[in-house]
């Protein structure tokens, strides 16, 4: 969205917003590229055991379409809230795309939330479905009595804890889905943020928020995207930083995203990830990347690790 420029003044002078009246994040980040460049790589995900999974934009389109049908089958309609209680993994990304294409409202939930934090956010948002994993399903099972709006828990790991098997349900669905027509101002997601007094507040964002993020994302990555760019962040996709500073803007531009869940931030593994998977761009929070419980300070840990490395040499 940024025009080329050699000075800040030039950049500000030449910039114009381009926000269409009708706009859908899911169509923009996925279907657009599945049509223009179906074989382009959307996601490279490294699993906990080191195995690599890759997804093209066409594959993400089909997976998200199946997911949209699955949600619809469980009664989810335009404007309904759908929780996404997952770490960085492929399902998280295409669940978001599916929710947006359905015209529903995504509610990202951090996997480290305990029952009180989850209960408040699910009650407040009135979420009717949650897409989660085995760990999340176990937490939700103990809260179900207090969540009258919650109709279904879709579990990407199976069907434990009174959940429904997400993948089994998804595989039976059609890979073709007609996205709902949304205006740029229509609601797309709720991200909860802490308040000074009282409970957290759910910031409701419109589809246009992705377009609104683009100038800042492009500027902070020195005119993103450039040839061969490939982006990664240790920040969880449940926060605006992981989701809207990295994943969604990259896909808007058809840029490959690298993902991995770091349960414990491992600088060795992070450096290796950067090198082996040819990462060219990163968003690194100065300290807390995603998991404060495990003393996670992405940049500083990388710094310390690097200093040790240089000493050894």
């Amino acid at each position: 969205m940024l025009p080329p420029a050699s000075t800040y003044e030039e950049l500000v002078h030449a910039f114009r917003w381009d926000i269409p009246e009708y706009y859908n994040i899911g169509v923009d980040v996925c279907d657009k590229w599945a049509h223009a460049a179906p074989d382009r790589l959307a996601l490279i995900h490294r699993q906990a055991n080191g195995d690599i999974e890759q997804f093209t934009f066409e594959e993400i389109r089909q997976l998200s379409n199946q997911t949209a049908h699955l949600l619809a089958e469980h009664g989810i309609e335009r404007g309904d809230r759908v929780g996404v209680l997952l770490p960085q993994r492929p399902e998280t990304a295409y669940a978001h795309v599916a929710i947006y294409k359905l015209g529903a409202i995504a509610v990202p939930l951090f996997t480290l939330f305990g029952p009180e934090a989850l209960r408040y956010r699910l009650q407040n948002s009135g979420a009717m479905a949650v897409i989660t994993d085995e760990e999340g399903a176990a937490k939700l099972a103990r809260l179900r009595d207090e969540l009258p709006h919650l109709r279904v828990v879709l579990n990407v790991d199976g069907r434990g804890h009174s959940s429904v098997d997400f993948h089994q349900g998804r595989k039976n669905q059609s890979t073709e889905f007609t996205p709902v027509t949304t205006r740029a101002d229509d609601p797309a997601l709720i991200i909860y943020t802490s308040g000074t007094t009282g409970p957290p507040k759910g910031a409701l964002h419109a589809h246009r928020t992705l377009l609104g993020h683009l100038p800042g994302v492009e500027m902070s990555h020195d005119f993103f995207p450039q040839q061969d760019d490939r982006i990664w962040t240790p920040a969880d996709w449940a926060w605006i930083g992981g989701l809207y500073d990295v994943l969604m803007p990259a896909w808007h531009h058809g840029i490959t995203v690298v993902s991995q869940r770091f349960r414990k931030f491992d600088p060795e593994a992070a450096f290796e990830l950067l090198a082996v998977l040819h990462v060219r761009n990163a968003f690194l929070p100065p300290h807390g990347a995603q998991d404060d419980a495990h003393r996670l300070h992405a940049l500083e840990i990388l710094e310390v690790r690097d200093a040790h490395h240089r000493q050894r040499r």
């Binding site: 930083g241 761009n281 990163a282």
Partner: peptide, 22 residues
């Protein structure tokens, strides 16, 4: 690496220097 962006809390001068060196 071509770019690293950082946000969420202030970035110190030390980290800026480290980024250049590393």
């Amino acid at each position: 690496m071509r770019t690293i962006a950082s946000g969420g809390e202030p970035l110190g001068a030390e980290l800026l220097t480290w980024g250049r060196q590393t």
